[in-house]
Simulated assay, not measured.
Amino acid sequence: MSERRLPVEVVYATAEQQWLLALDVAPGTTLREAVRLSGIAGQVPGLDVEACPLGIFGKVVSDAEQQAVSEGDRIELYRPLLVDPKEVRKQRAAKVARVFKKAKR
């Protein structure tokens, strides 16, 4: 009798391209191990799969080296933020304030 395998997906996206790799892993495989087994590091130049934050269905997982995969998990590799979202909102609000101030004159 063969060992039961769990189907999972490993996904990564850049502005130019997306990768979605489906694979079956053994029960007890951690999220980080599943990413390594997917072979995505060989397909995406410069991707450091050991340092990337991981998530499942849009929720960041803090203990990817410990957490075991579940059947049907979509394991996502996240890119680092280029700009702090709070700073972008501040800049946008300041720009709108300047426009309204100019319009009142």
Rank of each mutant, 00 (worst) to 15 (best):
S62P: 07
Y78D: 02
F57M: 02
G55P: 01
Q91Y: 03
G39R: 12
S2E: 07
P27T: 06
D48P: 10
R89P: 06
R105M: 02
G39E: 07
G39I: 09
V83E: 15
V69N: 01
A22N: 08
S62I: 06
F57P: 00
L81E: 06
S62R: 15
P80S: 07
R89N: 04
D73C: 06
A51F: 09
G28M: 07
D63L: 06
E76R: 03
E87Y: 12
V61M: 14
I40E: 01
T30A: 09
V83P: 02
M1D: 09
A34L: 15
A97L: 12
E3C: 13
S2H: 11
L54V: 01
L6R: 06
L31C: 11
D48V: 11
L54M: 05
R5T: 13
E71V: 00
P7Y: 14
R74Y: 05
A13S: 09
A51E: 10
V99H: 05
P27H: 07
Q43D: 11
V60N: 00
I56E: 00
E76T: 04
L82I: 04
K86D: 14
P27S: 14
L6Q: 05
E9L: 12
L47G: 01
V35K: 01
A15S: 10
P53D: 13
D24Y: 13
G72E: 06
Q66C: 03
T14R: 06
L31E: 07
L23W: 08
G55I: 00
V99Y: 11
V83A: 13
E87K: 08
V99F: 13
L82P: 00
A97Y: 04
P80R: 10
A68D: 02
L54G: 00
Q43R: 09
V96E: 10
R98S: 12
E9N: 10
L6D: 04
A34I: 11
K59G: 01
V96T: 13
Q66F: 08
P85T: 09
G42M: 12
V11K: 03
R79L: 06
Q17S: 05
R92L: 09
W19P: 08
F100W: 11
A22R: 13
A22E: 15
L23I: 07
A51Y: 07
P53V: 10
V69A: 10
L21N: 12
K95Q: 13
R32A: 15
S62E: 07
A51Q: 14
G42H: 02
E50R: 07
A64E: 05
R32C: 06
A93I: 07
A64H: 09
I56A: 00
R4Q: 15
Q67G: 05
K95L: 08
Q17W: 11
P85D: 10
R4M: 15
L23H: 03
A94P: 01
D73P: 02
L47E: 04
F57Y: 09
E76D: 04
T30W: 13
